[in-house]
Each structure stands twice: as C-alpha cells, then as structure tokens.
Write a protein that binds this DNA or RNA. Structure first.
Length: 192
DNA sequence: CGTCTAACTTAATCAGGCT
DNA sequence: AGCCTGATTAAGTTAGACG
C-alpha cells in the first residue's frame, strides 16, 4: 500500500502543497476540511481521519520528547461529521452481525456496508461503540480468545477490558487485548 | 534488524436526536 | 430533560514496507 507520509515524500503533491506543517496546519480538521482533502488527494475520508490521528500522535510524542507544550485545540472548532441516522432495519442487521462476530474484519465490514447502505467506516464506529457499551451482550466476544489470552505473555494485554472468563456468561474486567496474537487468528484485521 | 507508518483497538468524552 | 448512541479524541499495539 502506498504510504501517506509527509516525511518520506509519498504524500501526494497536492497534500504537500496544502500548507501542511505551516501556518495552515490544523491537527484537528473538521469534516469539511477532511472532505476537501479527500478531493485534493485521492484518498477516502476515513483514511484522512486516521492519518490525522496518527500524525497528532507522532507530534504529541515529539512535543513530549522535546518538552514543548502541545498547543492542543486552538481557534474555533470545525464542524463534525453529521450524525448518521441508523434505521431500525439497519440496526437489526448490525446486531445480528455483532452477535456472530464482535470484531469483523474489513471484508465483513464491507459486506455489511453493502447490505445496510452505510459507509464502511460508520460500520466500524458502530462496532466500536457497541463493544464499548454492551460488553456482556451475547456474541462471541474475544472470549475463547479472552480465556486463552489470559495465559498469553504479559505484554499481550496492557489494559484490562471486559471478558467472559469461563464461558459462563459472567462478564468481568479482564484482558482480551484486541491485538492479542490469539485473537489475530479469528477476525483481527481482514487486511492483507 | 530497526524504524516508520497505516490500521486497528479501548476508554473516555462530546454532542445530536429521539422519546 | 434524560437517555441512547454516533462522532471524536488520546493512547496504545501490530503488521508490513523500507533502509
């Protein structure tokens, strides 16, 4: 895949000429700015959003390393993505998918996007929120996963999360780290 | 092999819209 | 008004590309 980085020169010329890291550089672009960027460089809006996430992360790290204060958000906040209305039928479809697999890969998300008519990235957000808010709901959570993951090396699970330890339906705070290698075999990242 | 980056995750929080 | 839930954020991890 082509890398989108300002440093290695693979950032499309249009974007490089966009005043980035100059006076115009705004680490918190609103939906309008992101949309403009998607047109300027031929990338999808979610990819632009992820790029900004990673770029902020890099800059924050650098600021800390060099003990510079991170300015944070300044100036008027730009508009957000308009709230997507998910219909009952779309919700039902997503719920069925969620019960089957709480961590759908890209292929599954694209399939769901096709079936629901919602953008793939919105599907991803829906699953994120659903996992966060319904940790104990039916479905094969990282469970089998979680259980196995517990036995995995410590570095595997830096932060506790919700998990059904013994497949009993009793949900507790555990360590089903999303990137636990055990999980990778199931559904983590449908990417190639 | 080390470094860098895209893509992914959780957790917390903001904010729109429905009841 | 309160609640539910979509959108956004920081912080962290992993895989893959590249030198």
């Amino acid at each position: 895949m082509a890398l989108l980085t300002p440093s290695d020169g693979t950032l499309p010329a249009e974007a490089r000429g966009w005043g980035w890291r100059q006076r115009l550089w705004n680490p918190y672009p609103g939906i309008a700015t992101r949309e403009r960027l998607t047109q300027a460089i031929s990338l999808l809006e979610p990819r632009v959003q992820i790029w900004f996430q990673n770029e902020r992360s890099r800059q924050l790290r650098q600021h800390r390393r060099e003990s510079w204060p991170w300015p944070g958000r300044c100036g008027p906040q730009e508009g957000r993505q308009k709230r997507t209305t998910v219909t009952r039928s779309q919700t039902a479809l997503l719920l069925r998918a969620f019960e089957k697999d709480r961590f759908p890969g890209i292929a599954a998300r694209e399939e769901l996007a096709r079936e629901t008519g919602l953008p793939e990235y919105r599907i991803q957000i829906w699953f994120q929120n659903r996992r966060a808010r319904h940790p104990g709901q039916a479905g094969r959570a990282p469970v089998q996963v979680g259980g196995l993951c517990i036995a995995a090396p410590v570095g595997c699970h830096p932060a506790p999360s919700w998990v059904d330890f013994a497949h009993t339906g009793e949900w507790e705070r555990g360590f089903p780290h999303p990137t636990c290698p055990v999980r990778l075999g199931l559904s983590h990242r449908g990417l190639s």
